[in-house]
Design a protein around this nucleic acid. Structure first.
Lengths: 342, 342
DNA sequence: TTGTAAGCGTTATCAA
DNA sequence: TTGATAACGCTTACAA
């Protein structure tokens, strides 16, 4: 685009000074007479001068832009995270360029390339479900390029991560079901490729173990796709093909929980009387469905904020210190609603 | 950032040719011997050369980046639109930089400034609820800067817009309630500043008129904030303070509808037996609440796609033809669910 | 077929 | 206190 934008040259010409003088005057550099400084600033104001950020990027090898790789914007949790990211980035004068992968590795790879071409200063990443190899990230990190992973963190060394305590969240959710008197609790799990899924499975298992409840391998059912439809069908088939009916469901996300609830109700069972259900992520709709769904709330906005704060810190201090790997773990909060109160 | 990126210079030096030769070879310009062309391309490949997009932007005064101004990412409808925008932009080699206004005019103004500083090639805008004056847009449009408005379109001349047929959507929703036998239908309206709110009000009125049903000015109740809580309270007070109880509610969005539903149920009335409810936008949760909410679906993804297609067209053809103002109107679809079936 | 040089808008270095 | 000049990475007349 061009807007016939006023440049430093225009000001210089008009005032019969050099561009360097203008540049210095605008920047309040020392060694410029108050007189010229004022003249320059006044004219800049009058002509509505705005520095060309692209020229600055080129000059400074710094773009004040960060890239965000996210699976899906329409995922409520992620859109909350984006909000947090945006907030902090904006407050610090950074732009956000966004790419969603739609859970495709190919898209992830090419998005990163494009963003790098655009000289982003750093990257916030929640990788796709297809991503099992992290070379494209380690390569960058080895070159000391700032990356912060959020929510979905890779199972490799030396990364900087912001995530939630998925283990605890799952543990608390399961324990809550146990406390309510449910005894045969199944788990609708997320895709195995994601650490968060594993952590939630572990939390679920640990809670059952600590409370001496029965565990069965086939009570942990993967829902790789993650649609409501999928968990609806899975739940139906579980309840139909089991002599021993489950009485509790802990789902690794609310969509799956909602699908399960629908299935259970259709089978003529009552929630929460016959079956208790707890989800994960506290989607917008969770409090509105019938019965309102208990869920493990994740602080999405806060996660976005935190991840961005750390990223900017790394970006701005990069020269001085090598940034150390670390993992920030945010706590979840179990929101108990009707779906799990026996 | 820098990654010790390979530049055209590095290749030139290594091959003992000039940078222009490299540039031309990479671009398949005519008049380069097949031999050098091959050498250059091979080395570029080997060194993993990637052109610096920032340098290109500066050189060409074109950034292959478009800006998106949106009220809120967490709004399901808008996140759908973003998805559509992203899809088309990405497919055409454009980046998307995103700013949400959180419905604040100030934020809208400063976001636009920042984006312009970054030399975006064009702008997709859905302005904030606070925006009542459009000078900041007209100023740009007068300079022939490409802007496409979506969903919330300004009430001024010579704009390019993509929106949905809000009038028809509202008309159909209301008509449907009438057809189902509801007779005293109120409307929970959106903020008056938005044209879409007015259009929905008009559609609602027209449907009542065409079917000879009673209209009362105080049956059109503004819900300016747009939270569930707000409409919950408003609905409660309406039902408490009216001798003549309404039996139908058409809400200008699903959140408001959900709040109203909650209020109605708490008052001991049955949905849909005593009160029929229809919302707008078909949020993710709408099919999951109890009873499932009828809603006017808006094609968000399609809107994003369309708006971006038009914007890119304007950007790329700008020199040749002056783009004419136009408004694309996408049709809505009424999804009838249980909440409105008497 | 290739090279030289100017320029996109800005700032840093050096000299005046 | 100010100005010339080079440089960031790339493209493109123009010259050779």
């Amino acid at each position: 685009m061009k807007l016939g934008q006023v440049t430093i040259k225009d000001i210089a010409r008009e005032l019969n000074v050099s561009t360097s003088t203008v540049s210095r005057a605008l920047k309040d550099y020392p060694g410029i007479s108050d007189d010229t400084k004022k003249k320059v600033k006044d004219l800049a104001e009058k002509l509505n001068y705005r520095p060309n950020a692209v020229a600055l990027s080129l000059r400074k090898s710094k773009s004040f832009t960060i890239g965000v790789i996210i699976p899906e914007v329409v995922h409520f949790f992620f859109s909350t995270v984006i909000s947090g990211i945006e907030e902090v980035a904006y407050a610090n004068g950074y732009n956000v360029i966004l790419c969603q992968t739609n859970e495709k590795l190919q898209r992830e790879l090419s998005s990163i390339e494009t963003m790098l071409d655009n000289q982003i200063d750093g990257l916030l990443v929640s990788f796709s479900k297809e991503t099992e190899n992290f070379d494209h990230f380690t390569r960058l990190m080895n070159q000391n390029f700032p990356i912060v992973f959020f929510d979905r963190v890779p199972d490799i060394e030396n990364t900087v991560n912001v995530t939630v305590n998925d283990f605890n969240g799952a543990y608390e959710a399961t324990k809550h079901l146990v406390d309510q008197g449910y005894k045969k609790i199944i788990h609708l799990a997320g895709p195995k490729t994601l650490t968060i899924s594993k952590k939630r499975i572990d939390g679920y298992k640990a809670a059952l173990q600590d409370h001496h409840l029965k565990q069965k391998p086939d009570w942990i059912i993967p829902c790789p796709i993650g649609t409501q439809q999928e968990s609806y069908e899975i739940t139906k088939s579980i309840f139909k093909n089991n002599k021993e009916l489950p009485d509790g469901i802990f789902a690794s996300n609310d969509i799956a929980a909602a699908g399960a609830m629908m299935a259970v109700k259709e089978l003529g069972l009552k929630v929460p009387e016959d079956v208790g259900i707890v989800g994960f992520s506290n989607w917008q709709f969770s409090s509105m469905i019938d019965p309102p769904l208990s869920s493990v709330a994740q602080p999405g906005f806060e996660m976005g904020e935190k991840a961005t704060e750390i990223l900017l810190e790394i970006i701005e201090k990069k020269k001085e210190a090598n940034w150390e790997p670390k993992t920030i773990v945010l706590e979840t909060e179990l929101l108990v609603r009707k779906s799990s109160k026996k």
